[in-house]
Amino acid sequence: MGEFLYLYRGGQRSPSPEQSQQIMQKWLAWMKELTVSGNLKDPGQPLELEGKVVKGKSATVTDGPFAEAKDLVGGFSLVVADDLAHAAKLAGGCPILEVDGCVEVRPVMKMDM
C-alpha cells in the first residue's frame, strides 16, 4: 500500500456550458467511485492556470504559465493504492482523458521512522 499523487494535466477547460456540465457529472461519478472503493485519500484542489516562476540564485520572478496549456497542471488529488501499477490503473477512469488531458501518477516518497 502506498500513497500516490495524481496530477491532472491539460484537458480543455470549459468548452460550452452544456458540455462542461456533462464533464463535471463524469468527474463527480469518478470521484465517488474512488471514495467508495476507499482509494481516495484527499480529493485535492483545482489550480489557477496563472502563476509565477521564481528561478536562479537571484530569485528572478517571471510570469507563468510555464509550459504549453496542454501540459499545465490543473489540479491534484491524493489516492491510496496497492502499488504504482494499481494507482495507474485507477487513473484510467479519469474523465480528463476524454478531453485530451492526462493524469500524471507519482508515488509519494515515504520514510518509515
Binding site: 470549459s14 456550458p17 462542461s20 463535471m24 463527480l28 470521484m31 485535492g44 483545482p46 489540479g75
Partner: peptide, 17 residues
Amino acid sequence: VQDAFCRALEVWKLRGI
C-alpha cells in the same frame, strides 16, 4: 458570470457540488 460558472465547475469536479 460565465467565469464564475466555469470556476465553480472546476472546483465541484473534485470537491463535489
